[in-house]
Design a protein around this nucleic acid. Structure first.
Lengths: 241, 241
DNA sequence: TCAAAAGTGTTGCGCATACACCCATGG
DNA sequence: CCATGGGTGTATGCGCAACACTTTTGA
């Protein structure tokens, strides 16, 4: 293994991704247990090649971690405070850890990695059932965590997540992107529960149904018989006009 | 004069500012006639010190060009396409021009300056009457141009401007930031004309007045007698609650 | 007294919420 | 037949837009 060619990447610039998924009536975020240093939690992220667009870099990060392509992805903010750095204690531990790990890392590379970074925040919406999380080099493991159960993360990643969630809330209705979180077919009730998870508040059942159907973006399919002793709900599919 | 110390700055990252002003019922943008190369138009911009927050860098750019501090300033988007570079012909001209200009520039510095950049877009709102545009090093001169009369600019700066205007439109109402474009006191009619310039559409006089006053952020002052043979409008001052 | 523009009140419409009712399903 | 939850129709209230009217100013 050769030393990492940091010259291929833009220094001091990174990408951080808030990857949203939805399951069990909960909005979830894919976060990474960092392999080195003090083993803190982080948002999945990466760097930008000097010859690569930032959107491309973000989708590359996503492909690496989720295996998926053509994911809904949008930048929402840049985080560039001057004190956006690991504290010196943690930095020393991390550098030592990395150098000890294998020969790809030396003083220069680890200094590069632990230097001050300006990060572009992206959020992504995925069908959680299609994802097979794959660890990146820096991931001890990846985990889907409920939005209500997010641990303390490194740097300002908790703040990034908050901004990402805010961006999702702003856009869910305007851009009709919520369907990216659901499987191919779903019932109105399932969309409603998704909305309730995102906005953390209840919606009136009948009005919600009317609002969603009035968007004219759903195709009604066959009924979904669950065996429950009540009227079977219709399944729908999202159709872009 | 010594060679420019490019090592102090983050490479491949820049700031571009859409500086909005308002005058003569027109929304205006401060743009720069570039001094070197083919002398194209550009948005005022700058680079980020390795020890400097990006917001700080943006306000430094603004202070340099307008002389003003504490300006309303907000980032709205990152522009990071991989083909965001000057074309090779223009690049060669620019490098030659700069190297010929004075000894601060050499091959290394000009290559740095003309390399691929990822740019953070900021928009700023200023009271145009308080601004005394001061040329930066790269500015032949600065000019306030009406939003309806923007020339072809270099790179993707026209696109950046479009996004900046869109951000202004999104936030004007929600964040009550339009007053930053007006002098200390103003009439309702003047706010209305500002809104009409920003959104490029008329507003109904009476409803607009009601809407603005219902915000409860204006203090009514004395009347403004203009000598016109009609009822004198009140002056108002913006008060933050 | 009059034209012009400011200020204020009133009505109507559309949308979101609240309330009410009927229908299908399986025990 | 009944409990449960799905689907749909109707009333209500609020905010915005359209319309109408009054007031002030200086010629």
């Amino acid at each position: 293994m050769e030393k990492i060619d940091i010259g291929k990447f833009i220094a001091h610039l990174s990408i951080d991704c808030v990857i949203f998924g939805y399951k069990d009536k909960e909005l979830k975020v894919l976060i990474s247990k960092f392999k080195f240093g003090k083993g803190t939690w982080m948002l999945p992220g990466g760097h930008v090649l000097k010859t690569e667009g930032i959107d491309k870099a973000a989708s590359r990060v996503l492909k690496d971690r989720t295996g998926l392509e053509n994911i809904y992805l949008e930048q929402f903010r840049v985080f560039g405070d001057e004190n956006r750095i690991v504290n010196s204690e943690h930095k020393a531990i991390m550098k030592a850890d990395l150098i000890a790990y294998d020969e790809r890392f030396d003083e220069e590379v680890t200094e590069w990695i632990t230097s001050r970074f300006i990060s572009v925040g992206y959020y992504a919406l995925v069908d959680i059932h299609k994802v097979n999380p794959k660890n990146g080099f820096f991931d001890e493991y990846l985990e889907w965590r409920s939005i209500n159960d997010i641990p303390q993360m490194n740097y300002d990643h908790n703040e990034i997540l908050t901004y990402g969630l805010e961006a999702l809330r702003q856009n869910l209705d305007r851009k009709l992107i919520g369907f990216n979180l659901l499987p191919e077919t779903f019932t109105i009730k399932e969309i409603q529960e998704l909305y309730e998870a995102v906005y953390d508040r209840p919606f009136a059942r009948n009005n919600f149904q009317k609002k969603i159907l009035d968007l004219n973006v759903l195709e009604r399919l066959e009924k979904k018989f669950t065996g429950a002793q009540n009227k079977a709900p219709y399944l729908y599919r999202f159709i872009r006009n």
